[in-house]
Design a protein around this nucleic acid. Structure first.
Lengths: 196, 196
DNA sequence: ATCAACCTACCTACTGATAGGTAAATTGTA
DNA sequence: TACAATTTACCTATCAGTAGGTAGGTTGAT
């Protein structure tokens, strides 16, 4: 009862058992971020966890269901980080640096693309529910950047799109060029902008 | 004799027969740009052309070979466009607008991602030869932007990365959001930059 | 006794790839 | 010019492997 509550909420701490559902989503996320929706499989995930692929269908009836769950958790975590940035900063423009750090972490620590960046690039062939969930990540980010960084600016939305696009693109370039330099160049340019 | 020469060079005009090889690459490119490397198949291509999938193996022994051919043609065409921009402009900064138009065409006419943008985002799971070919697209673009737009600037490379990243990211956003607005916002910001 | 969370044992559909064959075009030689 | 040798561009048939998905059985905790 308590256990299942913990599992439903997905709470995991050091020493605490990670639920199968969380393991499935975690491994699936890494696989999607490495190679896209079509390159992750129930069999591959089941091997890494040590259960059978049929058992994954118990938790996620279809691949699309699991795909949506991955994107949903990813965006939810991102939203937590965004809220933390608001809570720990004063000046709006102070928030650019910790925002950049979220993407920097993906490239340098995870060494993976942004999940929704990958999904966006192959949007055409995704199940519709997953397309919508991927889109939501961008909606959330644009809305946050607008209000958190440029609350007064008439070009807030354009600037928000500009920042998000350049960071997603920078990840993309960093991955394929196997170098952090392009990403560094991009954030250097973002920092030196005269935002108004 | 003349015919095989035409085919080898891949020259195609109105009323001229398009070689099977060109048809294969053309259809494959569209499929990759829609859903990535793992979402195109020999069978799907063969159906659309009206030949058997085994026949595609005659022209391209492995899927990786075809993948490289697609990326190679894509970058070659891009390089032609880049050369045309140089030829038809005087001032370096005049070249930004026609460069943007190359990406605008992908989103608004093709309604597809940049081929190498898709490949970059799933770089980790690609055959190595294809990874390198995708990387080359970015090397070519960065080098061109540096010398064609900012021949004198000490931050030429950073600015080149910035432009390319923001345009790739803008395509990505345009696709998933099913809207041209994010792309428009990005190029509006690019235009209003005070490049030095 | 119930029920969540697995399991075994399948299925169908599709993947890239290979073997072996063929008609037609091309090429080299006499 | 004639003809044999070779090449091109396909074909049919089949392979092993993998994909997502399902029906029904087992296990273990409440």
């Amino acid at each position: 009862m308590l256990y299942s509550l913990i599992k439903k909420q997905g709470i995991t701490r050091v020493g605490m058992t990670i639920s199968t559902v969380d393991k499935i989503i975690e491994i699936a996320e890494l696989q999607v971020r490495a190679g896209g929706y079509n390159s992750f499989s129930f069999r591959e995930i089941s091997k890494e966890i040590g259960i059978k692929s049929a058992s994954i269908h118990y938790h996620f009836p279809t691949k699309a269901d699991l795909g949506v769950a991955i994107a949903n958790r990813y965006t939810a975590r991102f939203e937590e980080h965004l809220a933390n940035i608001i809570a720990s900063t004063g000046e709006p423009l102070e928030r650019l640096e910790p925002y950049i750090a979220l993407f920097s972490h993906a490239l340098k620590v995870d060494k993976k693309m942004c999940l929704c960046g990958v999904l966006a690039s192959e949007s055409d062939v995704l199940p519709e529910a997953l397309q919508l969930e991927a889109k939501r990540f961008f909606d959330v980010n644009i809305a946050w950047l607008q209000s958190a960084l440029f609350p007064q600016s008439p070009q807030a939305k354009a600037q928000a799109c500009f920042i998000l696009a350049s960071l997603e693109g920078a990840l993309l370039m960093g991955k394929v060029m196997k170098s952090n330099t392009p990403f560094e160049h991009v954030i250097e340019q973002l920092r030196s902008q005269s935002w108004k």
